[in-house]
C-alpha cells in the first residue's frame, strides 16, 4: 500500500505526458488517415530542438514553446514534402506505413549522426517538491500535469467551439463530403499536422523533463504506450486517447512498482492485446475504416 500511492503519482505524470502525445497522434490520424509511425521520432527531434535552445541559454519553459513550434512546422513539412507526395502518387494505406517507418529510421539516425550516441539532459533550475496525500511531486512534474490539462482543454475547445474544429471533424468523418460542402480540406489537413506536431513537440520535451535524460531513441521507445493509449481509446478519437492515456499511465506505473520497472511497456502491450482480443469490433467499427487516405 505504501508503494501504491507514489506509484499513482508517477502514473498521473506518465498519463499526462501520454495524453498529450496520444491526442496528437490520434488527432492527425483521424483527419488524414495516415498512421504516422515516425511520430516518436518527431518527438525526439523536438526534444533536441529544445535542447539546443536550452543550452543556448533559453529558459526551459520557453524552449518548450520553441519545441512545440518546431514539432508543428516539422510535422507539416513532413506531410507536405514526403507523405502527401506519396499519397498523390497513389501509395496505398500499407505503403504509407512503410513510408512513415522509413522516415522514422531516417530521422532517428540523422539525429544519431548529428548528435552522436550519448545521453542528453536539460538545464532546469531545481524546484521544490510538494507532497500531496503521500505523493511526492516536483515543481516541474506539477507543471507537466498542468500543461497536459491545458492542452486537453484547448483541444476540446478547439474541436467543439470553433469553425476550424468543426471543419476538422468533418474532414475526419468524410473528406469528400467536407470538400463538397466548402471546407478547404487541404488547409484543414495542414492545420491537423501543425496541431498534432505541436502536441508531439510538447510531449517530447515533457517526456525528457520527466525522465531527465534522453537519446535518439527516446521518442521511438515511447511510441508503444502512445499507440496502446490511442488504440485503447479507439484510434482517431481524441477523448478516447485521453482516457486510454490515463489507463495506460496508471496501469504501467502501478505495475512497475508492484512487479518490475522494466516491464512498464509490457503492460501497455498486454492492454493493447486484450483490447484487440475483447473488442476488435470496437476498433473495426471505426469512422475511418472505410475511408480513403487523405493526406
Amino acid at each position: 500500500m505504501s508503494q501504491l500511492v507514489p506509484a499513482i503519482g508517477f502514473g498521473l505524470i506518465t498519463a499526462s505526458i501520454l495524453a498529450i502525445a496520444a491526442v496528437g497522434f490520434t488527432l492527425q490520424f483521424s483527419v488524414t488517415n495516415i498512421l504516422n509511425l515516425a511520430y516518436g521520432d518527431v518527438m525526439t527531434a523536438s526534444a533536441f530542438a529544445a535542447y539546443i535552445a536550452n543550452h543556448a541559454g533559453v529558459d526551459i519553459w520557453l524552449s518548450l514553446l520553441m519545441a512545440a513550434l518546431f514539432g508543428a512546422v516539422f510535422s507539416m513539412l513532413l506531410n507536405r514534402f514526403v507523405y502527401f507526395q506519396f499519397v498523390r502518387r497513389g501509395t496505398r494505406l500499407f505503403g504509407m506505413i512503410i513510408v512513415t517507418i522509413a522516415m522514422s529510421l531516417i530521422i532517428q539516425n540523422v539525429l544519431l549522426a548529428v548528435f552522436r550516441p550519448t545521453f542528453f539532459s536539460y538545464e532546469v533550475s531545481a524546484s521544490a517538491s510538494y507532497t500531496f496525500a503521500g505523493m511526492i511531486l516536483t515543481g516541474s512534474q506539477l507543471a507537466i500535469m498542468g500543461i497536459a490539462v491545458v492542452a486537453m482543454v484547448s483541444v476540446h475547445l478547439l474541436s467543439t467551439r470553433t469553425r476550424l474544429g468543426k471543419a476538422m471533424r468533418a474532414t475526419a468523418t468524410n473528406p469528400g463530403l467536407a470538400r463538397s460542402c466548402g471546407v478547404a480540406t487541404d488547409r484543414v489537413i495542414d492545420v491537423a499536422w501543425l496541431l498534432s506536431g505541436a502536441l508531439c513537440g510538447i510531449a517530447g520535451v515533457v517526456l525528457v523533463l520527466n525522465t531527465a535524460t534522453f537519446s535518439e531513441v527516446t521518442g521511438a521507445n515511447f511510441l508503444v504506450p502512445i499507440i496502446a493509449a490511442a488504440v485503447l481509446g479507439g484510434i482517431g478519437q481524441p477523448y478516447g486517447a485521453m482516457l486510454g492515456a490515463v489507463t495506460i499511465g496508471l496501469a504501467s506505473e502501478v505495475a512497475a512498482s508492484v512487479i518490475n520497472p522494466s516491464y512498464k511497456d509490457v503492460v501497455a502491450f498486454a492492454i493493447l492485446i486484450v483490447v484487440l482480443l475483447v473488442r476488435p469490433q470496437g476498433i473495426l467499427s471505426e469512422v475511418a475504416s472505410g475511408k480513403e487516405v487523405a493526406a
Binding site: L35, I97, N221, Q281, L284, S289
Partner: peptide
Amino acid sequence: LRRLRSDYQAMVMLVLSLI
C-alpha cells in the same frame, strides 16, 4: 490476423517486435 484492419495489424506487429 483475425479481423483487424491491415494498419492495425502492422501496428500490433511492430509493437510485438519491440516488446
